[in-house]
Amino acid sequence: MSHQNEWPLWEVFIRGQHGMSHRHVGSLHAADAEHAIRNARDVYTRRNEGVSIWVVEAEKITASSPSDKGPLFDPSRDKVYRHPTFYDIPDEVGKM
């Protein structure tokens, strides 16, 4: 199938009113990055969801392969000592 007449796919990340990080909200088609920002504004922030938008061309994302799930993630399963649940964090530290 030819895709030469289709606009590229962009992944959209929105930083909401609450929270410090941008979260993936979905994808859309657009001719270029600026166009993608505008489309993201109209498609994903209609209900006042966001204060900031990131877009990245989907093909620029390198993803881990599902078949590598075992070797990638299993070894950390039995290392509970890596979780910082055994520490008391002073209030003055604030957000971590």
Partner: peptide
């Protein structure tokens, strides 16, 4: 012509 423009026009 495309979904994204459809939503933008409706907005």
């Amino acid at each position: 012509p495309i979904l994204e423009e459809d939503i933008a026009l409706a907005n």
